[in-house]
């Protein structure tokens, strides 16, 4: 068990180290901040794309056209079955007449071209909206597959190509975030490891004396690990600050409406759990970098 005097000793050593080699610590924190900034940037893009997708979700609908031969009683039970799908938020039955009226309305002044035709030429349909959690390309395709297998449903339409492309963009962002983030993470660990190595070498004589007079390994290691943690947290704080600045300055330059894409108000800064992830990553990077370096260099003595 560590005594209070030893804890105070560790804290004093950390503070002293930050005073004595301030710029080295700042540089290491800065390096971590760059890594976390890039990772956080991708996270921000990904979150906003997902946010947009959810926003558009109410407009992403599946149209299931009923076969003309389906009797009215069967339509009821079909609607009940479809409504029981866990993915479905709501579905609306559009009768042939409703579809015909809507079609005529959409033609406006040119609706005269429909003269002589009857409402029976358009099939009745189900307009289906999915729950927010299922508004992805994969989930959509799965629901469509099940709808196509339903008796009484003929054709099923949904914005397949568009959803596929959007899904690919989202996947690309996610991959870039983790691959690039992974490389940067490894590179940053190396940098932190080297900073700690330099710190250990700079204090080699002190560490040797401490070992010779009976200091426990924990007491020798703890200040370096604590320094790594503080550097990591500082780096994360710096990254979040820069991301916020960038987000604010970019969004303030956008027009209030982005046309069919979104409203400016729909763009959001990182969610609390993403912020926690960034801070946690900074903490892990700092701690891990120090521990790995200590394992390598303290063994020798």
């Amino acid at each position: 068990m560590m005594k209070w005097a030893q804890i105070a000793f560790i804290v004093r050593r950390v503070l002293k180290s930050f005073r004595e080699v301030f710029w080295t610590h700042l540089l290491t924190s800065g390096t971590m901040a760059v890594t976390l900034f890039i990772f956080g940037g991708f996270l921000l893009i990904q979150e906003n794309l997902q946010g947009l997708l959810k926003g558009w979700g109410s407009r992403i609908q599946i149209f299931a056209y009923l076969e003309t031969s389906v009797p009215a009683a069967d339509t009821e039970s079909l609607l009940a079955r479809v409504n029981s799908y866990p993915e479905i938020e709501r579905s609306r039955f559009v009768s042939q007449k409703e579809a015909w009226d809507g079609f005529k309305r959409s033609l406006g002044s040119q609706s005269g071209v429909l003269e002589g035709l009857s409402a029976e030429i358009l099939p009745a349909s189900l307009e289906i909206t999915l729950k927010t959690a299922y508004r992805s390309h994969g989930a959509l395709a799965e629901v469509v597959k099940r709808l196509r297998a339903e008796k009484g449903i003929g054709e099923v339409e949904y914005p397949e190509e568009w959803m596929e492309k959007f899904g690919l963009v989202l996947l690309g962002v996610q991959w870039a975030q983790w691959v690039l983030g992974g490389f940067l993470f490894a590179a940053t660990l190396l940098i932190i490891g080297n900073t700690v190595k330099l710190a250990i070498l700079a204090r080699k004589d002190e560490i040797e004396i401490m070992q010779l007079v009976g200091a426990r390994r924990l007491l020798i290691k703890a200040p370096f690990v604590l320094e790594g943690m503080v550097q990591g947290l500082l780096g994360a704080g710096l990254a979040v600050l820069c991301l916020w600045q960038l987000f604010v300055s970019l969004t303030s330059q956008l027009p209030a409406s982005l046309g069919i894409l979104a409203e400016r108000a729909q763009l959001q800064f990182l969610a609390p759990d993403s912020l926690l992830l960034l801070v946690g990553l900074g903490w892990v990077m700092g701690t891990l970098g120090s521990l790995l370096s200590l394992r390598r260099f303290l063994k020798r003595w």
Binding site: M2, K3, W4, A5, Q6, A8, F9, R12, E206, I209, M210, V213, G214, A215, L219
Partner: peptide, 11 residues
């Protein structure tokens, strides 16, 4: 003093 501090003696 360092030698005493590292073994837990108050500063």
């Amino acid at each position: 003093a360092l030698a005493a501090e590292v073994v837990g003696m108050a500063r």
